[in-house]
Design a protein around this nucleic acid. Structure first.
Lengths: 249, 249
DNA sequence: CCGAAACTTTGATCTCGATCAAGGCGCAAC
DNA sequence: GTTGCGCCTTGATCGAGATCAAAGTTTCGG
C-alpha cells in the first residue's frame, strides 16, 4: 500500500520543489533541507528528448517537478519496453550507482530538479535518515515493478488498459486533491505509443481497447487525451485486481 | 552487472550460513556477524509449502540456504505470475516493512536461515553499513525486476525460455565455480508449471519451446530436469538481449 | 486559410501462443 | 505385478492481439 503522497505544506521552503518532499524530505531534518537546497538546480527537457542513456555515467539524480518521464529499454530489433513511469514528485536516479540502468526519456516537456550527484551521495552517506528514506522508496519501486510484472505476464489487453487508467486517475486525483463528484477527470500524459510500450502492446490494440472501454461506458473520452471515469469501482473491476488497482512507486 | 557472489572463505564462522555472506556480511564488521549469529535459526519447508502469504505480518527475514523459493501473486481467477526467484544465497523479506507483499512459496524443499525480525530491524537501524548494504541489494532486485519486465512484455516464448536457461546456467556456474569444458551442465530447479508462471506462458508452450531449443541444438536435455549448454553464446543469442542475459538479483 | 506531419482510429487478415485433448513416463503404495 | 498420481510431451484447433493497410483528426508553421 502506497503511503499517501506528502503534500507541500510541511516546510514552507519546499514550495518551489515538490519533489524534495515526497522523495527526500519526509524523514529528514530541516538542516538537510538547507544542504539539499545548496546543491540543486532545475533543468527542462523537450518532449521526446533523451535525458540519459542506459550505461552512461550516473549524473541524473533528482526528481520530476512537472511533466512525465519514462524509463525504458530497447531490444536490438527495436522492440521497446517501458519499465517505469516518472510522474511529478517521483525520484529519478539510483543513489550510489555508477551508471544509469535504463534509458530515461521525456514523454512530455519535463522539468527536473537535479542534485549535484557526488555531493548528494556524500550527503546520503552522512545522513542515515536520508539513506533509510531511499531504501524505503526503493522498496516501493520494487513492489510497483513486481505488480507491473503481473500485469505484463498475465493480464489481457483490456485489463492492462483499465489498470493503467486506474493508476493515472489515482495519481491525478492525489495531485489535485479532487473529490469524486460526477466522476474523476484526468489527463493522459502519454501518447498511444508510450502506453503501448508501457503495457507490452501495440498502438492499435491500445486504441481499440480504449474504444471498447468507452463503448462499455467505463470511461468517457473528453478528447483523446482527457478521460472521465464515472464509476471508479467499475474501472477497478475491469482492471482485474482484487486489490487496489496497482501503484506507481 | 551483478557483482560476483562472494564465496565463503572470508570469515570462517560463516561456513554454515552462505547467506550472510552475500546478503549481509559483505560490508559489515565482524562484530555484526556475532550479533546476527545470535538471532538466527534455520527452518526447512517442503516443496509446494507456502512460506508466507501476501498481506501477512512480516516475520520472514533471512536467506535461502538450499533449494528454491518463489515470489508470486495470483489473480482472483487463478492466473498466477511469479515475480521473483529465490535461489541459494538470495535474501528474503523486506526490511522494516510491516507486511509481506507477495506469496512466498517453496518450489523445492527449501532451507532458510531466518533472523528474528524485530531484532534484525533493530540491528539494521543501528548499523549504517547494514542499511547501505540492504539498499544496494534492493537496487539490484529492482534492476532484475525491470529486466524481467522487458522479457514479459516484449520477448517471444522462445526468447523467454532461452533467457531463463541463461540465468539458471549462470547462477549454477557461479555456485559451483564450474568452468566451461564440454559445455555448462546445470539443473532446472523448477517444474514446467513454475517456469510457465515465471515467464508468463503456459506449461505446454514451455515444453514445446524447450523441445524446439533441443532440436535446434542450443541445449541438450540429459533428462527433463538437467540441461547441458554446449555453446553459451548461442544460448544468449536466442535470448535476444544484446547485453549479458539478465540477472536474478 | 493551406499543407504537412504527427497522432489516432478503424478494418482485414495473419500468427503465435492458449486451449483442449490424449498419451507417455517415473515413482510410490498396495 | 497393477493402480494411481504427478509431471511432461505432443497433436489439433482456437482466438487474442499483432501486422498490414487506409483514412480521420489535431497541431502547427506558413
Amino acid at each position: 500500500m502506497l503511503q499517501a503522497p506528502l503534500i507541500l505544506q510541511e516546510h514552507s521552503r519546499c514550495a518551489d520543489c515538490p519533489i524534495r518532499h515526497r522523495a527526500v524530505c519526509a524523514y529528514c531534518e530541516p538542516a538537510e533541507l538547507v544542504k539539499l537546497d545548496a546543491i540543486k538546480s532545475y533543468k527542462t527537457y523537450k518532449a521526446g528528448e533523451t535525458i540519459a542513456w542506459a550505461g552512461e555515467p550516473m549524473d541524473v539524480i533528482g526528481s520530476v517537478v512537472s511533466g512525465v518521464a519514462t524509463l525504458s529499454r530497447t531490444l536490438a530489433d527495436g522492440r521497446r519496453q517501458m519499465v517505469g513511469l516518472l510522474l511529478p514528485s517521483d525520484f529519478i536516479g539510483r543513489p550510489c550507482r555508477p551508471a544509469v540502468a535504463f534509458d530515461v526519456v521525456a514523454a512530455s516537456d519535463v522539468t527536473i530538479c537535479r542534485f549535484n550527484a557526488p555531493e548528494f551521495e556524500k550527503l546520503v552517506r552522512a545522513t542515515p535518515a536520508l539513506e533509510r528514506r531511499l531504501l524505503d522508496m526503493t522498496l516501493d519501486e520494487l513492489d510497483a515493478a513486481r505488480d507491473w510484472m503481473l500485469l505484463l505476464g498475465r493480464k489481457t489487453a483490456r485489463e492492462k488498459i483499465a489498470s493503467l487508467m486506474a493508476i493515472l486517475a489515482r495519481r491525478d486525483a492525489n495531485l489535485t486533491q479532487q473529490t469524486v463528484a460526477d466522476g474523476i477527470l484526468f489527463s493522459l500524459p502519454l501518447t498511444r505509443e508510450a502506453m503501448a510500450d508501457y503495457l507490452g502492446l501495440t498502438i492499435e490494440t491500445v486504441s481499440r481497447q480504449i474504444s471498447a472501454l468507452k463503448k462499455a461506458g467505463i470511461i468517457i473520452l473528453e478528447d483523446s487525451r482527457h478521460v472521465r471515469v464515472p464509476d471508479f469501482v467499475a474501472l477497478l473491476d475491469e482492471a482485474g485486481d482484487d486489490s487496489d488497482g496497482g501503484m506507481v512507486s
